[in-house]
Simulated scan of single mutants.
Amino acid sequence: MSVGIKFLMSAFLVAGLLGGCVSSPGLGDTIAARGAAAREVAEDYKRGEKLVALGEKNVSRGETLIDKGQDQIRDGKQLLATAKQDFCTDVRNDDPACQ
Protein backbone atom coordinates (compact mmCIF):
# COMPACT_ATOMS: atom_id res chain seq x y z
CA MET A 1 0.00 0.00 0.00
CA SER A 2 1.09 3.51 -0.60
CA VAL A 3 2.13 5.79 2.23
CA GLY A 4 -0.89 8.05 1.61
CA ILE A 5 -3.39 5.22 2.00
CA LYS A 6 -1.64 3.92 5.13
CA PHE A 7 -1.69 7.41 6.58
CA LEU A 8 -5.43 7.84 5.83
CA MET A 9 -6.24 4.43 7.28
CA SER A 10 -4.25 5.22 10.42
CA ALA A 11 -5.93 8.60 10.73
CA PHE A 12 -9.41 7.06 10.43
CA LEU A 13 -8.50 4.36 12.94
CA VAL A 14 -7.25 6.88 15.49
CA ALA A 15 -10.25 9.15 14.90
CA GLY A 16 -12.61 6.24 15.31
CA LEU A 17 -10.99 5.11 18.54
CA LEU A 18 -10.91 8.60 19.98
CA GLY A 19 -14.42 9.35 18.81
CA GLY A 20 -15.65 6.17 20.44
CA CYS A 21 -14.10 7.15 23.74
CA VAL A 22 -15.43 10.66 23.63
CA SER A 23 -18.98 9.72 22.66
CA SER A 24 -19.48 6.91 25.17
CA PRO A 25 -21.91 7.90 27.91
CA GLY A 26 -20.67 8.50 31.41
CA LEU A 27 -21.93 6.64 34.45
CA GLY A 28 -24.40 9.42 35.27
CA ASP A 29 -25.86 9.31 31.77
CA THR A 30 -26.15 5.53 31.96
CA ILE A 31 -27.88 5.66 35.35
CA ALA A 32 -30.23 8.39 34.15
CA ALA A 33 -31.11 6.39 31.02
CA ARG A 34 -31.79 3.27 33.06
CA GLY A 35 -33.85 5.28 35.54
CA ALA A 36 -35.95 6.72 32.74
CA ALA A 37 -36.45 3.27 31.25
CA ALA A 38 -37.43 1.88 34.67
CA ARG A 39 -39.98 4.69 35.11
CA GLU A 40 -41.49 3.90 31.71
CA VAL A 41 -41.74 0.21 32.60
CA ALA A 42 -43.34 1.06 35.95
CA GLU A 43 -45.88 3.35 34.25
CA ASP A 44 -46.71 0.65 31.70
CA TYR A 45 -47.11 -1.88 34.51
CA LYS A 46 -49.47 0.39 36.45
CA ARG A 47 -51.45 1.12 33.29
CA GLY A 48 -51.62 -2.63 32.62
CA GLU A 49 -52.93 -3.32 36.13
CA LYS A 50 -55.68 -0.74 35.65
CA LEU A 51 -56.65 -2.23 32.30
CA VAL A 52 -56.81 -5.73 33.77
CA ALA A 53 -59.04 -4.52 36.62
CA LEU A 54 -61.29 -2.65 34.19
CA GLY A 55 -61.48 -5.67 31.89
CA GLU A 56 -62.41 -7.98 34.77
CA LYS A 57 -65.12 -5.53 35.84
CA ASN A 58 -66.46 -5.37 32.27
CA VAL A 59 -66.48 -9.18 32.02
CA SER A 60 -68.47 -9.37 35.25
CA ARG A 61 -70.95 -6.79 33.98
CA GLY A 62 -71.16 -8.65 30.68
CA GLU A 63 -71.91 -11.93 32.43
CA THR A 64 -74.69 -10.21 34.38
CA LEU A 65 -76.12 -8.78 31.16
CA ILE A 66 -75.95 -12.20 29.50
CA ASP A 67 -77.87 -13.75 32.40
CA LYS A 68 -80.51 -11.00 32.19
CA GLY A 69 -80.75 -11.42 28.43
CA GLN A 70 -81.21 -15.18 28.73
CA ASP A 71 -83.95 -14.62 31.33
CA GLN A 72 -85.68 -12.18 28.98
CA ILE A 73 -85.47 -14.66 26.08
CA ARG A 74 -86.93 -17.42 28.26
CA ASP A 75 -89.73 -15.11 29.45
CA GLY A 76 -90.43 -13.96 25.89
CA LYS A 77 -90.64 -17.52 24.60
CA GLN A 78 -93.02 -18.40 27.41
CA LEU A 79 -95.22 -15.42 26.52
CA LEU A 80 -95.19 -16.44 22.85
CA ALA A 81 -96.17 -20.01 23.70
CA THR A 82 -98.96 -18.86 26.01
CA ALA A 83 -100.27 -16.35 23.46
CA LYS A 84 -100.23 -18.98 20.69
CA GLN A 85 -102.02 -21.48 22.92
CA ASP A 86 -104.65 -18.92 23.88
CA PHE A 87 -105.12 -17.90 20.25
CA CYS A 88 -105.48 -21.46 19.06
CA THR A 89 -107.78 -22.48 21.89
CA ASP A 90 -110.01 -19.43 22.06
CA VAL A 91 -109.96 -17.80 18.64
CA ARG A 92 -108.81 -19.78 15.62
CA ASN A 93 -108.35 -23.45 16.15
CA ASP A 94 -108.37 -24.02 12.39
CA ASP A 95 -105.48 -21.60 11.70
CA PRO A 96 -102.39 -23.32 10.16
CA ALA A 97 -100.23 -21.83 12.92
CA CYS A 98 -102.17 -23.90 15.41
CA GLN A 99 -101.48 -27.20 13.68
Rank of each mutant, 00 (worst) to 15 (best):
R74I: 02
L27W: 03
L65R: 13
L54E: 12
K77L: 11
A36M: 06
A42Q: 10
F12W: 08
D29W: 05
A53W: 00
D29L: 09
L13N: 05
V59N: 10
V14M: 10
K50N: 08
G76D: 11
V52H: 04
L13C: 09
L18I: 05
E43M: 13
A33W: 02
E49R: 14
G69F: 05
A36H: 06
F12N: 07
A38Q: 09
A53C: 02
G20D: 10
K50C: 00
L51S: 06
G28H: 06
E43D: 12
V41G: 00
G48R: 08
A53V: 06
V59G: 08
L79N: 14
Q78G: 04
K77W: 06
S24Y: 12
L27K: 08
L18M: 11
V52P: 02
S23K: 01
D67M: 05
D75L: 02
S10I: 12
L27Q: 07
G28L: 10
G69Q: 05
E56A: 05
M9A: 12
D71A: 11
L27A: 12
L79D: 14
K46N: 11
L54Y: 10
L54R: 14
A36Y: 04
G20L: 03
S24N: 08
V59K: 13
G76M: 04
I31A: 07
A15F: 05
L80S: 11
T64L: 08
G19W: 00
A38V: 07
D67C: 00
E40R: 11
D44C: 04
K46M: 14
G20S: 12
K77D: 14
L13Q: 04
A11G: 04
E49L: 15
A36T: 10
G55S: 11
K57T: 06
A38T: 10
R61I: 02
G55H: 10
T30A: 08
G76N: 13
K77Y: 10
R74T: 09
I73C: 03
T64Q: 14
L65K: 12
E43P: 01
R74E: 09
G62I: 00
Q70F: 10
F12L: 14
R74P: 01
A42P: 03
K57N: 13
V41F: 12
P25Y: 02
G16N: 08
G26P: 01
S23E: 07
R61S: 09
V59Y: 11
K50F: 07
Q72S: 13
G16H: 03
D75E: 12
Y45N: 04
E63K: 08
A11P: 01
G55P: 02
I66A: 09
S23D: 05
L51G: 00
D44F: 14
A38K: 10
E40W: 02
P25F: 00
L18Y: 08
I31H: 02
S24G: 09
K57P: 02
K46I: 15
L65V: 03
A37D: 03
P25G: 05
E49S: 09
S10E: 10
V41P: 01
S60G: 11
G26A: 05
Y45G: 00
L17G: 13
K57Q: 15
A32G: 04
Q72L: 10
Q78F: 06
L54D: 14
A36K: 08
G28K: 04
G19Q: 08
V14D: 07
A33T: 09
D44R: 15
R47Y: 12
G26Q: 03
V52E: 04
S60K: 15
K46Q: 15
E63M: 04
